[in-house]
């Protein structure tokens, strides 16, 4: 029981839930100096109607590279930590790498605890492996990833 709880709430997750890397103002022009003028930007808002968890995420892409991710959200430790971990993981990487990470993360979340995550690819996001054994919480972990996917597609269109 409580070892289960600790496998769900790994220290990395509790830490990210508080640090919230990437949480900040969403204005498209904010902090323009750090973003190349040529970059495309896309935004997505996701809501989990069951628990009211919410996130708005904006991404800046320049030549298929993810320059920057910023988000605002409210929700449980799992959903907020997932947004924070994702921001750290994908920033500076390519769009293709991010899509690969998303696929792996989604596969992990659907695994009901049967997959050993590849830390090479998933980095800190591997800490969410325990979430897959709590089906009611998988949506929480996926929320920011779904927002990222949609924001990237919006930036490319």
């Amino acid at each position: 029981m409580s070892s289960d709880l600790e496998s769900l709430y790994q220290d990395i997750i509790l830490d990210h839930a508080k640090r919230r890397v990437g949480q900040g103002p969403l204005e498209p022009s904010s902090d323009a100096s750090s973003v190349a003028a040529s970059s495309a930007t896309g935004e997505s808002h996701q809501l989990n109607p069951i628990c009211g968890d919410e996130i708005t995420l904006r991404v800046w892409l320049a030549e298929s590279r993810i320059e920057r991710v910023v988000w605002q959200g409210a929700g449980c430790a799992i959903s907020m930590a997932s947004a924070s971990v994702l921001t750290e993981l994908v920033s500076g990487g390519t769009r293709d790498e991010m899509m690969e990470q998303l696929d792996r993360f989604r596969e992990l979340m659907r695994s009901r605890g049967t997959i050993v995550p590849d830390e090479e690819i998933l980095g800190d996001a591997a800490a969410f492996a325990g979430v897959s054994r709590f089906p009611a919480r998988v949506k929480c972990a996926m929320l920011a990833w779904v927002a990222l996917e949609e924001a990237v597609l919006a930036a490319n269109s």
């Binding site: 029981m1 409580s2 709880l5 709430y9 069951i50 628990c51 009211g52 449980c76 430790a77 929480c140």
Partner: peptide
């Protein structure tokens, strides 16, 4: 602490409550 996390913590002690 978000209610979902409160509920999850209580669940680990066998306590069923409503969250949301």
């Amino acid at each position: 602490v978000h209610s979902h996390d409160v509920g999850q913590f209580l669940d680990s002690r066998g306590i069923a409550v409503r969250v949301g």
